[in-house]
């Protein structure tokens, strides 16, 4: 099962732009992880007399918002909130989706019907509408967001795993494992999963990007992460409200969320070209 690391394909998959994206992803993750320690101020501390300070103000590098809160600190803590939600949701989606896809693809017949129909039901709703319905019933907040988006992103993983599993389920090494009377769980985990994992690993940053898009979108609407907790979507919304006075907040938060989504997407593209060579011809 040990594969030789193909460095030539690695260098070809990672163009300079994709390396830059990778670097930015690392930067965002570091910022999110270290936010409580590197933020110059408390993101919730108000200082009304010093509101709407411009970029480059002493003591407030990126200026302040409508309550005089430090924008840099809010941006860093916002990264933390967005990433925690996106990561949680993507993990939930990956675990459930891969499990459904593996089972459906390996067993076929009624298992396939059951698992893939479940997935289709999720696809029968426009995602954000389903999310809004659940928020109405359970209320907003981080954990609700993780659960909702975890469910919404199951189909991407389930369908991908299903398709790939179909492709390898009668491969010789799977037949061999079966001939050795390996338990089904072992076949799925040791013989099939490693051989379909390339595409799945590439799907992960793409799902993260989508989760950041949707999660920050809900926060923008005021129905995801709710104020005063800092979130990028919420900052864009507040920035839009006060843009006639001071467009800085809108522009800064817009750049942060856009670059992050773009970088995760590019990283996904690079990983797919590297780990899943079959996909290159398809696109």
């Amino acid at each position: 099962m040990m594969q030789r690391l193909d460095t030539r394909r690695l260098t070809r998959s990672f163009t300079p732009l994709r390396w830059a994206a990778f670097a930015f992803v690392v930067l965002v993750i570091l910022a999110a992880t270290l936010a409580p320690w590197i933020s110059p101020h408390d993101p919730l501390a108000q200082d009304i007399p010093r509101r709407f300070l411009p970029i480059g103000s002493p003591d407030h590098l990126l200026g302040t918002d409508e309550f005089g809160r430090d924008l840099l600190s809010r941006l860093l803590h916002g990264a933390r909130v967005e990433l925690v939600v996106a990561l949680g949701a993507s993990l939930v989606a990956a675990v459930l989706g891969i499990t459904l896809g593996l089972l459906g693809g390996y067993f076929g017949r009624w298992v396939e019907l059951l698992t893939m129909r479940t997935v289709e039901v999720i696809l029968a709703f426009p995602p954000i509408v389903l999310a809004l319905l659940i928020v109405t019933i359970y209320g907003s907040g981080q954990s609700t967001l993780i659960v909702i988006m975890g469910l919404l992103f199951i189909p991407a993983f389930a369908r991908l795993t299903f398709g790939q599993t179909l492709g390898v389920r009668s491969a010789e090494y799977v037949e061999a494992a079966r001939a050795f009377a390996a338990p089904t769980g072992v076949i799925l985990a040791r013989a099939i999963l490693p051989n379909v994992s390339g595409a799945l690993i590439a799907q992960f940053p793409i799902t993260l990007a989508n989760a950041i898009l949707l999660g920050s979108g809900l926060s923008y609407l005021g129905l995801g992460i709710t104020p005063p907790t800092p979130s990028w979507g919420g900052m864009v919304a507040a920035g839009q409200r006060f843009m006639p006075v001071d467009p800085t907040m809108l522009i800064i938060s817009s750049i942060a969320v856009t670059l992050t989504v773009l970088s995760f997407g590019l990283l996904g593209d690079a990983l797919r070209d590297w780990l899943d060579p079959k996909s290159r011809r398809r696109r």
Binding site: A209, L213, S216, G217, Y220, G233, V236, A237, G239, Q240, M243, P244, P247, L250, I251, S254, V257, T258, V261, L262, G265, L266
Partner: peptide, 22 residues
């Protein structure tokens, strides 16, 4: 198209209002 797909729709909208209206 990569950029068009990565910019959140609310960001495009808010920036469009900032430019064309405000």
């Amino acid at each position: 198209t990569s950029v068009a797909l990565a910019v959140p729709v609310y960001v495009v909208g808010a920036l469009a209002v900032l430019l064309f209206s405000v």
